[in-house]
Design a binder for these strands. Structure first.
Lengths: 211, 211
DNA sequence: ATTTAATTATACTATATAGTATATTTTTCT
DNA sequence: AGAAAAATATACTATATAGTATAATTAAAT
């Protein structure tokens, strides 16, 4: 009959706006540190104590703000997912010139991966540490992204501006090539994010035989 | 002054061929189970006890054949690396028609990734669990692969049969797109490995503007 | 100001697990 | 067969770490 002691478990009350903002702020701080640590050391190898120490607090502070360790990972991954899906914001894959739309999507996608590369790495590495239904949730979002790319490629093929077969495989290839950035991008590297985006969109338009 | 008790530490003697083969065979059995477990559960989450139990032996059996847990991971990754590098066997990137060579390399690379997808996943996930100099070793091999691809693309550009800029970035894109296969390939999927290899090589030749 | 509720810390539990000292069994050699 | 060496198991240690019961502190409410 142990009742929950932390706030993380229950929904935040509508009133007390200031307090809730403070609560959210602290959660953000925890997430920021956790992200860094999970990225460099991995989820399993990161201890809750280490996160607490980095923040200058103690473990119960963390458990007051999150239900458990997995809960922290889940929040990080959900944030990354929604950022990735936002690539489609304001873009209607069913209308407009496929070449332009694909180019735009690729560029946005590249920038999103670079921006979220730390959590994207966890995405592909630590997903297995989630409970099954959260895992399924994430898989679905991945499918949505591949599906969006596949649809624009299909339209491009139908309208004759792309010359390529198997839109599904092409879209997986595109998604892979872009996602892969997280394994090699370095902020002090040779190219800026915009340059990378520009080149990759060029390569990808070549790939689908755009003209 | 505790002297090593396991054979894993010392070099195998040249004589006693049968015994060494048996020793190697047992090591292979351990590696096979470890690979499966590391893949599904991750390195950290896999216990040595679990590996032993799956094999129907006990923990000291493992430690007699390997120095420690990391040693097992290291052997798995080294095996994968050398399989990946074998993609270049008998291929001279400095001679012959770039189109044909790139096509051949891509197809081989695809098949290698599919074949070693389990350990390739670990490659990108559990590398961080290795000691620094082993990590550096692995990085070097990755660079060798990207470098080989970049070289053939450079030659293709020089000889006018590829139309694309920035060979280095192109080669990273190619390597990424192919490596990515490990995240989605399923043996009961829609395409056979050969079909995937054929399509990808086509896409990639498109990408570099081959004609 | 005092009471109550929310927040954070101290100090602990329970458990998991890498690695090992030592005993036992099996194999090899003469 | 019997001695020596190799291979494997039993039973243990040491340690790390997720999570918690409870106490102390701080903020809010009356």
């Amino acid at each position: 009959m142990a009742q929950k002691k932390n706030r993380a478990a229950g929904a935040a009350k509508a009133k007390n706006g200031i307090r809730n903002k403070l609560f959210d702020f602290k959660r953000e701080q925890i997430l920021e540190v956790a992200e860094r640590f999970f990225y460099h050391r991995g989820y399993q190898a990161t201890t809750v104590d280490a996160i607490a120490e980095e923040l200058g607090v103690t473990k119960p502070f963390i458990y007051y703000h999150f239900e458990n360790k997995r809960d922290i990972l889940l929040h990080l991954l959900e944030r990354t997912m929604s950022r990735s899906l936002s690539v489609f914001d304001g873009v209607d894959v069913e209308k407009g010139p496929p070449v332009e739309i694909l180019k735009e999507l690729v560029q946005r996608f590249v920038l999103a991966v670079i921006e979220t590369r730390v959590s994207t790495a966890m995405f592909w590495r630590d997903e297995k540490d989630l409970p099954i239904n959260d895992k399924e949730n994430i898989r679905k979002m991945k499918r949505d992204i591949d599906g969006g790319l596949a649809r624009i490629i299909e339209r491009g093929i139908e309208s004759g501006c792309f010359k390529v077969n198997d839109p599904k495989m092409v879209s997986i290839c595109i998604a892979g090539m872009i996602s892969w950035i997280y394994t090699w991008y370095q902020s002090d590297g040779r190219c800026t994010p915009d340059e990378i985006a520009a080149r990759m969109s060029e390569y990808i338009l070549n790939m689908v035989g755009a003209h």
